[in-house]
């Protein structure tokens, strides 16, 4: 367990059954359902990368009863995990292209694995330029600080940070994410932008990107809905003819635009 922000922790899970651990594979962007037995179960994006004997990692913000219970657990506690579920970021399709990764607040959780996938030295040259824009309310709320150096030092990679409100030690940007997008003007040419964060931030960030010439099909995000079963039965995550747990959580905004409903 690692404190990421005052209300966000990174949980590392090791599977008890070695055979299951051995056979577990997942893709970037998939999610799993984590149980605190006696409290309940909730869906979280997997923040780690699939690697032999690596821990499963989840970045969890304290927002409700279940996340509260997770946050209060001690190192070494036993939780349950079901998964992996859902689709993934099509990383192979992104090869050869530039990437803009924009995360607001806890929206950085699913994006962390995207960034770590691209900056792996063995893989880095398969991708073009990488722009990471990580924003939060305050400097303390910026998640994954322990990895900023690794990200920023990767070739052809630019890490930009911004906060809504600075503090005495903050020397960086104080600006809203959409404004930073307008300032940095990433080129839509051969580029995919992945945006995750609160609905209001997504709305204005998409507008800024579209103004720069990004098409809906170049804009990718994760749809956050309530999920209970993870296997397309419980109906909680139904949006249009899609079940986010089966067909998502990763969608292009061209697909999201066809949902009829705003989610």
């Amino acid at each position: 367990m690692l404190d990421l922000t005052p209300d966000m922790k990174l949980f590392s899970l090791r599977l008890q059954d070695p055979a299951v651990a051995e056979s577990l594979h997942y893709e970037v962007g998939q999610f799993a359902l984590v149980s605190v037995f006696g409290v309940g179960e909730a869906a979280f994006d997997i923040s780690s990368l699939d690697a032999p004997r690596a821990a499963l990692e989840f970045a969890v913000r304290r927002v409700g009863t279940l996340t509260e219970a997770l946050h209060e657990m001690e190192e070494g506690s036993v939780v349950g995990v079901r998964g992996p579920f859902g689709n993934c970021f099509p990383m192979a399709e992104y090869e050869g292209r530039n990437l803009v990764v924009i995360g607001g607040g806890s929206g950085m959780a699913p994006l962390r694995s995207v960034v770590n996938y691209v900056v792996q030295p063995a893989r880095r040259e398969r991708f073009g330029q990488l722009l990471i824009l990580n924003g939060a309310r305050t400097p303390a709320d910026l998640a994954f600080k322990h990895e900023f150096e690794k990200w920023a030092s990767s070739p052809q990679t630019c890490l930009e940070l911004t906060v809504d409100r600075g503090d005495d030690d903050w020397r960086g940007r104080v600006a809203l994410i959409p404004d930073v997008v307008r300032e940095l003007k990433p080129s839509p040419l051969d580029c995919v932008a992945i945006v995750c964060g609160p609905p209001i931030m997504i709305k204005f960030t998409l507008k800024a990107l579209k103004d720069l010439g990004f098409a809906d099909s170049q804009l990718v995000g994760t749809v956050e809905t309530k999920m209970k079963c993870g296997i397309g039965k419980c109906g909680r995550c139904n949006v249009g003819d899609k079940y986010v747990c089966l067909d998502g959580p990763v969608f292009t905004f061209a697909e999201i635009g066809r949902f009829l409903e705003e989610f």
Binding site: G38, P199, E224, K228, G235
Partner: peptide
Amino acid sequence: HAERVRCWDGCQSALFTKLAGGHNPR
């Protein structure tokens, strides 16, 4: 002892789609 149960729920309840953080898309 604890049990994990599944119970009927329905889309006509405001709580059906409300997320833990408070956002409710429907």
